[in-house]
Structure formats: structure tokens, C-alpha cells
């Protein structure tokens, strides 16, 4: 028996200076590190194919698995404004890179729907890195923030060296993983009205944590305008609103004087609202779930979130609002 020691002692004894010979010839890629928002816009103008990376929770997966080899990575971590938020009298201006954890912890009163959605994002580690800018940039129908942003009626602040504009969320999603950004534009912030009423968010996954949505549903009551807005995720090529369902419900609430009398929403109204939400879906069968299930589940979530928000509106918040 020679050498009774464990083999790993050999391998831990590295000399790192020997490993540094690898050249960039492997995969040509440039890493741009703008120190400010202006520099970031300039870089994006100069290299419109540059892929912005902030939390990295989408981009790095694609790079790690060789699904994407962008010419330029545009690191936004150094752009401090993107990590800040301002709570105004009417509106919250939420920096694109504010991590979901911060939204959960600090903006629950102002943005309850988005805070609930943030809590369903992946894992604590991902929530510490990812922000709504990534969800919007990727524009995957499965992005967890979308239904909450749709229901809240957010505006996306985008900017290029040419100037800045606010894109209403309803116009933002233009196709499967496509959005309304021009090639030289970057997402700077999201403007979301402070909640004027209860908001809810539900997401179905086949695991109780760290799961991509099979489908998701966001609902916001807007007592100030006496309207209801919805958002549906993962049940159509893009995140969508259930507009017919909203119109139906707006009318039903109006006719019945529900906003004033605070009565319990009748089961038949809730049922029809749920059915119309299901009908707003245009889902596919995939490994995460069937189209039929998605339609069904969106209906169930629509009914439940309506009941929760309405109960809350009626002033019975403590019993119905979920914690955690």
C-alpha cells in the first residue's frame, strides 16, 4: 500500500499562472462595461446587437448552454439608476434592475400584485439578481412579472441616444419573445401606478417552489376608475389581458352597484368572468402542461383572485390575503 493519502490533495495544489494561456479565439465576444446610463445608451447605439445583461438569469443560461453567442455583452450592473426606485404620489418608478427581492420586501403596499409575482420568481438566489427589466427584455410569455404589469397598467420607460419614450404595457409585447424595443433602445424603468385597490397574483407550476409557470394570472381592482384589469402569462404566444372578461366584469360590477354597495360577487358573475378569462387564452401543449389544462387553470385562478381581491376590497382583508 503506497500513498495512503487521498487523491484530491494532488489536485488541489494548482498553479494558476499556468492556466492563463487561453485566448479569446474560443468564441469571439466583447464585454462592454458602461459606468453610467449615458455610456450604456452610447454603447447600445454603437453596437445594436449587444445583449444587455443585468441579473444574468436569462442571458447566462443561454450562454452556458451554447444557445447564444452574442458578439457583445452589455453589462448594466454598473448603472446605479437601474437599481433605484422612486415612490411618487401617484406612481412608482421602478428601475429595471431592482431585484425581485427588493420589490417583495419594500414595495408590497404600493405594488401588491407585482410583489406577489416577484415572490413566485424562481428561487431566492434568482430573486436577488433578477428584475423586471430582464422579464421585459426577454419577453417570454412565461415571465412571472408580466401578468402583474398588465393588470396594473404599467408603462415601460425605454431610451436610446435618440431619446426616451414610455411604452404602454399593452403595446409592449409584440410576439413570441419579442417586444416593442428598437435595436438601440434599453429598458430603463417601469412606471406603475400605486395600487388604488387590491391586487392578486397566482401562478401554477408543477412544483411548490422554483418553477416556471405553466400559466399565471394577475388581477388588479382599480376602484378609482371602477375598472378591473387582468394579465395572463404562459397561456398565449405573448402575455395578454383578458379584455372581454374585464369588460364583462366592469359592466357587471357597474350595473349591480357593487363598487358602492360592496356586495359579495355572485357566483354566476365570477363563473362567467372565469370562463371569459379562459377564453382569452390561446395556449399550446408542451412539456409543462396541456393547452386544455392551461385554459382550465387560468379560469380557476381568475375566479379565486377575483374572490380574494373583492373580499379584500370589501374590507375583510385579514382573512383572505395570503401571507409569505
Amino acid at each position: 500500500m503506497d500513498e495512503p493519502g487521498p487523491p484530491h490533495t494532488i489536485w488541489l495544489d494548482r498553479n494558476h499562472s499556468e492556466t492563463t494561456e487561453t485566448k479569446k479565439r474560443a468564441g469571439q465576444m466583447d464585454f462592454l462595461r458602461p459606468a453610467s446610463w449615458e455610456e450604456a445608451l452610447a454603447a447600445k447605439a454603437e453596437h445594436p446587437t449587444a445583449v444587455p445583461i443585468a441579473g444574468g438569469t436569462d442571458v447566462m443560461v443561454e450562454i452556458n448552454f451554447d444557445h447564444r453567442r452574442p458578439e457583445y455583452l452589455l453589462d448594466l450592473n454598473r448603472v446605479g439608476d437601474l437599481y433605484e426606485w422612486e415612490v411618487g404620489e401617484e406612481t412608482v418608478r421602478l428601475g429595471a434592475s431592482v431585484p425581485y427581492t427588493r420589490i417583495m420586501e419594500h414595495l408590497r403596499p404600493e405594488l401588491p400584485g407585482l410583489a406577489l409575482a416577484s415572490h413566485t420568481v424562481a428561487s431566492p438566489q434568482i430573486r436577488n439578481r433578477g428584475g423586471v427589466g430582464g422579464n421585459l427584455g426577454t419577453a417570454s410569455p412565461a415571465g412571472d412579472a408580466h401578468p402583474a404589469l398588465l393588470a396594473a397598467g404599467a408603462r415601460v420607460e425605454v431610451e436610446s441616444v435618440r431619446g426616451s419614450r414610455l411604452i404602454p404595457i399593452d403595446d409592449f409585447y409584440t410576439g413570441v419573445k419579442r417586444n416593442a424595443l428598437a435595436p438601440d433602445e434599453l429598458i430603463r424603468a417601469v412606471h406603475i401606478d400605486r395600487a388604488d385597490g387590491p391586487q392578486q397574483y397566482s401562478k401554477v407550476g408543477t412544483r411548490n417552489a422554483m418553477v416556471i409557470a405553466v400559466c399565471a394570472f394577475g388581477l388588479a381592482l382599480h376602484p378609482a376608475t371602477r375598472t378591473v384589469r387582468t394579465g395572463i402569462g404562459s397561456a398565449a404566444p405573448t402575455p395578454v389581458r383578458a379584455k372581454a372578461a374585464e369588460e364583462f366584469l366592469n359592466a357587471a360590477l357597474d350595473e349591480g352597484g357593487f363598487w358602492d354597495n360592496g356586495r359579495i360577487i355572485t357566483p354566476s358573475v365570477a363563473k362567467q368572468f372565469a370562463e371569459l378569462c379562459s377564453a382569452a387564452c390561446n395556449p399550446i401543449d408542451d412539456v409543462r402542461g396541456t393547452a386544455s389544462y392551461r385554459r382550465h387553470a387560468v379560469g380557476v385562478m381568475a375566479r379565486r383572485t377575483l374572490m380574494w381581491t373583492w373580499e379584500s376590497y370589501r374590507g375583510d382583508a385579514a382573512r383572505t390575503e395570503g401571507v409569505a
Binding site: 415572490h119 397566482s202 401554477v204 411548490n208 417552489a209 395570503g322
Partner: peptide, 9 residues
């Protein structure tokens, strides 16, 4: 059921 995804109370 559903856990953090907030599907049922």
C-alpha cells in the same frame, strides 16, 4: 398546494 405560487388559500 401550489406553495409560493399563491394558487389557493
Amino acid at each position: 398546494p401550489g406553495g409560493l405560487s399563491n394558487t389557493t388559500h
